[in-house]
Design a protein around this nucleic acid. Structure first.
Lengths: 107, 107
DNA sequence: TTGACATGCAACTAAATGGTTGCATATTGT
DNA sequence: ACAATATGCAACCATTTAGTTGCATGTCAA
């Protein structure tokens, strides 16, 4: 069952899917219809993306009547992080990130 | 220049490339030849993977004579993490991760 | 210098991927 | 009931991608 990990990365490989995750990070519980808004691709394309995201466990959904509500699941992302960032690196890398942020805000 | 982010995710999408990252996380400074060992794919295939990983800035390399030494760069991974894990989630998710680890060790 | 070693580049192939269109199903409100 | 709304499924197409093979270049050591 190494497959689940592979699904996560494959799912994250597409920019449309990443954008969907961004939207769900900002606001959870969106329906398929809502997630389609502001894209130039068809509803069916979005459906396919959501199927992959759910298979990867990056998105969880609940059916409510004829609607389907979608939520972001942060767990798999955390596992990626833990995989390649050792305990020491974590501090350095966080410091670097914060520095970058601070500089960005000064612009 | 949205391309750089895309390269990171595309690079991570392949399991052979992730394995290369694992090897470099365990031990930095490996040559192409060393990275080829224990794979069933050709040297040229590995080269191609490394090109992508370097383009994504996930791997940095230094030429030394006729050899090329490779190192893992943790910065892009951290940025993925920061993107989809909000400040509160970070705590919960870490706690969950640690719990899982503890349970795994008890087996 | 010359052979062995380490890496680089290019053309080609098979499979995976992202997108489309068309039709089917299920739920809601009047 | 029935029309509008929300989602699901399947076949098909173009492009990308991971891998190969073959040859070229560059560096070291005897």
């Amino acid at each position: 069952m190494v497959a689940v990990e592979d699904k996560v990365f494959k799912a994250l490989a597409d920019s449309s899917r990443r954008e969907l995750l961004d939207r769900l990070h900002t606001k959870g519980g969106l329906t398929l219809g809502e997630l389609c808004e502001g894209h130039d691709m068809s509803r069916q394309a979005v459906t396919k993306h959501l199927v992959l995201l759910e298979a990867a466990n990056l998105v969880v959904s609940v059916k409510q009547g004829r609607e389907k509500l979608h939520y972001l699941n942060p767990v798999p992302i955390n596992e990626i992080y833990m995989r390649w960032i050792g305990k020491f690196e974590r501090q350095r890398v966080h410091a670097l990130f914060n520095l970058k942020q601070a500089l960005k805000e000064k612009e």
